[in-house]
Computed example of a mutant assay.
Amino acid sequence: MKALISIDYTNDFVADNGALTTGAAGQAIEQAIVDLTKSFTEKNEFVVYAIDRHEKEDRYHPENRLFPPHNLNGTTGRALYGGLADVYKESSELPTVYWIDKRHYSAFSGTDLDIRLRERNITEIHLSGVCTDICVLHTAIDAYNLGYQIVVHKSAVASFDPVGHEWALKHFKQTLGAQIIE
């Protein structure tokens, strides 16, 4: 069994005016993410939206020393970007669609994702979203350590750092044994 984990494809990470935007790189993958998500939804396969959630002025969160405020709870910056918002709206009531508010880079850290996957006998996870070298990478590493087979859709991941993006793709394949789909 397989699942799709869609990571952080929000206005703050993708829109031109996003607080921590991937800009053109993130925008260029919109159709691939939409198509991939629809393909999982239409086959009644498990789709997880793992979305970064931060609180305004949280002085305890370590990311606040590294990045500007982003994906703040209750803001439009945290809303899904572009066509993916429509896909979620159309399918959010399905029992195969699940939303996770994540506080750390990895979709597994501090969430019930592993439990949700295991109770559905999912052994293979497909990854899409941003940033390839941060949240997608940390999710892939945790998935590897938990024994999942990993598939990364190259056309459906992006970063604001082109060097980091390419390094992460290489790391997925060479170090985590992930399958990279072009």
Rank of each mutant, 00 (worst) to 15 (best):
E63I: 09
E63V: 01
Y144A: 08
H165A: 02
S92H: 13
S106K: 04
D8S: 06
S92V: 11
A28I: 03
D112K: 08
V47H: 00
L146K: 15
A32D: 12
A168G: 08
C135L: 13
G23P: 04
F160A: 15
V47Y: 00
H54V: 04
T175Y: 02
R59V: 05
D52K: 06
A19M: 15
A50M: 10
Y144I: 03
E30C: 11
H61W: 11
L146E: 11
G164I: 06
A156G: 09
A168P: 03
I180P: 04
T41S: 13
F46P: 00
Y98R: 11
T123R: 06
L94V: 04
H153P: 05
P162A: 11
I150R: 14
L72Y: 10
A28R: 14
P62G: 06
L36I: 03
L117N: 07
I51R: 01
D86R: 13
K43Y: 07
H61M: 02
F172R: 07
D12L: 10
H104G: 00
S6W: 09
N17I: 05
K173Q: 14
I125F: 08
D114M: 05
Y105V: 01
L66R: 12
A168H: 04
K38Y: 05
G74T: 14
R78P: 07
A168D: 03
T37S: 06
T37N: 07
T132G: 05
F46S: 00
D35H: 09
K2I: 01
Y81S: 05
T111K: 03
F46K: 00
F108H: 02
T111H: 01
P68S: 04
L66Q: 10
K173G: 05
T132M: 03
Y105S: 07
T111N: 03
K154S: 10
V47K: 00
W167M: 10
F108D: 00
D101T: 07
Y9S: 03
L72I: 15
P162W: 11
V87K: 10
I125H: 05
I33C: 13
Y81Q: 10
